[in-house]
Design a protein around this nucleic acid. Structure first.
Ligand SMILES: [Mn+2]
Ligand SMILES: [Mn+2]
Ligand SMILES: [Zn+2]
Ligand SMILES: [Zn+2]
Lengths: 156, 156
DNA sequence: AATTTAATTGATAATGATTATCAATATCAA
DNA sequence: TTGATATTGATAATCATTATCAATTAAATT
């Protein structure tokens, strides 16, 4: 099975299901459309709400189950690794990136640094590992939150 | 309060507690000793077991609470970010490092790469962030697990 | 088209890690 | 020693996720 560049997400998901002996169903269709309709970092609850806009009878368990399949099909991936519920982001035609997270206001900046990626590859090689992936999240204070904190400090 | 290089972990913890208006107690002493007695990546359950070797009456909640304080005092930090229970590692006189994780056998290798650390600093600066920290975990297959997987593939 | 087979669904219970609650107890400054 | 206050362990509660299961639905086969 060759994945054609013109194959859209729905076709990718359908053929993924068929390959695994699973069925394309109405609820799975609904969850997929709900996910595809929103960019960004989405919790399962976000996707449940979006799904129920389309079909109010969708169950929570179905969203958990379907999102796991959508990720396995390569259309979604885990976004952050901080505490709290898992967050999915789009993976189809969305290239790999890491996250810079402001712990003051919660803002998340996506970035890609080829030097870091290359250095990571070098680490894998150095220890004789076959690379599978990595998780990296930088945590800090954005410019605004830094300034605000300075103010608080100088006026106690 | 200047932290003397000769101040041992117990003294650091005691003065941390005093500074926060908290008390050094028998159970906290026990949990600290249990943690200090074991290197590596320890779950709260590991530390509970070790604590109960010293004092069988230690409660689970006390371990959760005390480990949080020990981490806040700078003696412990979170080790991994994979699923499952939180893992603590020693932070006192244990320099920062990242983790290379074999998802085949679970092996964890600790490494430190100044180039990656520097590149991370550059990212913070580029986006105007004040750096606080980062979490990075590389995931792959170690040499043994890679070899084993190749065997399975060529002999179906 | 009807039948058969197996996968799927949503509701609900269960799980696992962590946190909150609370009455009884321990600590420590005065 | 006392007394205010922090702490404890047991237990309940929470939160995200998974497991269970009877009813339903999708596809393969007649
Ligand atoms: Mn992202
Ligand atoms: Mn470590
Ligand atoms: Zn911010
Ligand atoms: Zn391995």
């Amino acid at each position: 099975m060759i994945i054609n560049i013109n194959m859209n997400e729905r076709e990718i998901f359908t053929s993924f299901l068929k390959r695994k002996g699973l069925k394309m169903t109405q609820p799975r269709e609904t969850v997929l459309q709900a996910f595809l309709a929103h960019e960004g970092h989405l919790t399962t609850e976000d996707i449940l709400h979006a799904s129920r806009m389309i079909d109010a009878s969708i169950g929570q368990a179905t969203v958990f189950r379907t999102m796991k399949l959508i990720a396995e099909a390569g259309l979604a991936r885990d976004a952050c690794q901080d505490d709290g519920p898992r967050k999915y982001e789009h993976a189809y035609l969305h290239s790999h990136h890491d996250h810079l997270h402001c712990i003051g206001c919660g803002k998340v900046i996506e970035f890609f640094d080829p030097d870091i990626e290359q250095a990571q590859e070098a680490i894998f090689k150095q220890y004789g590992f076959t690379a599978i992936g990595h998780r990296m999240e930088l945590q800090g204070l954005c410019a605004e939150c830094s300034a605000q904190q300075d103010k608080t400090r100088t006026q106690p």
